[in-house]
């Protein structure tokens, strides 16, 4: 599907620019919003120690979680307007999902 590839390319460009800024200011957190039952990013490249702030801009509640070194990192129920964060200390690939809405998912690569 042509359209899909274009969208992917667009996302890649977006994420790589975030990765560049991430490398320059290692401590800067990345803000990811949850709106329309979607994460605003599908793929993110971070450096170790960087943080993602998850903001719920939806009318409904979400529950972000991921698995870090075999253990669940669960942000718990996040109501409309609330925000919370996860710091990714170790290199690796992380799959972040909403426990309530499994269609909401993103991949975080940490170097």
């Amino acid at each position: 599907m042509n359209t899909k590839h274009t969208i992917c390319a667009g996302l890649l460009a977006l994420t790589s620019s975030i990765a560049v800024s991430g490398a320059t200011f290692a401590a800067d957190p990345v803000r990811v919003t949850q709106q329309g039952k979607q994460f605003s990013e599908k793929n993110l490249n971070l450096v170790a120690g960087q943080e993602i702030i998850f903001i719920n801009d939806d009318k409904v509640a979400h529950n972000v979680y991921t698995i870090v070194k075999g253990k669940k990192r669960d942000l718990g129920l996040q109501k409309s307007g609330e925000e919370d964060s996860i710091t990714f200390d170790a290199a690796g690939t992380y799959r972040v999902r909403c426990a309530i809405h499994p269609k909401m998912k993103m991949v975080v690569k940490v170097k």
């Binding site: 039952k37 979680y65 669940k72 909403c98 426990a99 309530i100 809405h101 499994p102 269609k103």
Partner: peptide
Amino acid sequence: WGFHDIGLGDNDEGRFEVLEI
């Protein structure tokens, strides 16, 4: 395609048995 407790009141733990959140 999500998972919700709509308060049916039985004891089946549903998705919690698969993903402990």
